[in-house]
């Protein structure tokens, strides 16, 4: 369709704006990759930091983030998937369900620093877990719970109703039906959604600032009651608190790249899993 000159102008403007956003994303990624890549080597990812992180590696920060992700998943996944199963398979439209849905929406909107305050008040101080992997994981789990619930519920609802009916009509109980004919087909969707949620947790700084992250702790944790370093916090410290910020710039870029790769890698992995299973179960 060839419109008038002004139509074409507006069309071009809209397109330019959209591509400006794409270019910006591209530029951010490009800048971090190009300047981070020279630092990235085996020593950097497997070594311990020296001189407050001005040299050496970032292994404790990688390990810390890894433990936090693991802890977050193991708390948030069962709770999130359980909630989703309840909401999609059991819940009737009623007050209780409305309250749960309101709560989930509220949780999704709470700022990450408020989660940090909450984790400090409840886990660190009230439960006396101290600043530890446990407190940090629990705080992050609360934060990603709504993402996991929403994604899992969507995956469950995508399973055709006919499977449930057919299974019930054969005399299966409700739970048998869910276990054998709903969960297997929605698993990939639930995992995808959860990984995307957890990817977000891996990159968050504000909630762990007050609940777990150590400024400089060049060793690996022994238990869930230990403090750890974490990649996002390490980057923050290197970029803003280091006395010689300009000089450690390569280390900052290296850390940023590792964090970016980790978070985007998780997302890409999730998308890959989704594509793989979409082929397996087609309806």
């Amino acid at each position: 369709m060839s419109g008038s000159f002004s139509e074409n102008l507006i069309y071009g403007l809209l397109r330019a704006i959209t591509y400006a956003i794409v270019l910006l994303v591209g530029y951010i990624l490009f800048d971090i990759v190009i300047k981070g890549l020279p630092v990235l080597n085996w020593e950097f990812v497997s070594g311990y930091p020296h001189q407050s992180g001005a040299s050496g590696g970032i292994l404790p920060a990688i390990a810390g983030t890894f433990y936090l992700v693991l802890g977050t998943i193991s708390v948030a996944l069962p709770l999130g998937v359980g909630s989703a199963i309840y909401l999609s398979e059991y819940a009737f439209q009623g007050k209780f369900t409305t309250i749960i849905r309101m709560a989930i929406i509220t949780l999704a909107g709470v700022p990450s620093i408020v989660y940090g305050l909450f984790g400090l008040g409840l886990f660190v101080l009230f439960f006396r877990f101290g600043a530890s992997i446990l407190s940090g994981s629990l705080t992050l789990a609360c934060m990603v719970l709504p993402t996991i619930i929403v994604a899992s519920e969507e995956a469950l609802r995508a399973v055709p109703k006919g499977y449930r009916e057919a299974s019930l009509a054969l005399g299966a109980t409700k739970w048998e039906t869910i276990r054998t004919n709903v969960l297997p087909y929605s698993l990939s969707g639930m995992i995808t959604g959860s990984i995307l949620g957890v990817g977000r947790a891996a990159g968050e700084t504000a909630p762990i600032l007050l609940t777990v992250a150590a400024f400089f702790l060049p060793k690996l944790p022994n238990s869930i009651f230990d403090q750890v370093m974490a990649l996002p916090y390490h980057l923050y410290i290197l970029a803003t608190q280091h006395p010689d910020a300009e000089k450690v710039r390569p280390m900052q870029y290296g850390t940023a790249l590792v964090l970016l790769l980790l978070v985007l890698g998780l997302s890409l992995g999730a998308i890959f899993i989704r594509a793989h299973y979409r082929k397996k179960y087609k309806w």
């Binding site: 055709p160 006919g162 499977y163 009916e165 057919a166 299974s167 019930l168 009509a169 054969l170 005399g171 299966a172 109980t173 004919n181 087909y185 179960y281 087609k282 309806w283």
Partner: peptide
């Protein structure tokens, strides 16, 4: 209900074999 549905089988409008 489980026993009942064993005794009274059902076939649906839209064929719904499990994947």
């Amino acid at each position: 209900v489980v026993k009942l549905r064993r005794k009274v089988g059902m076939v649906f409008q839209k064929s719904n074999p499990f994947p």
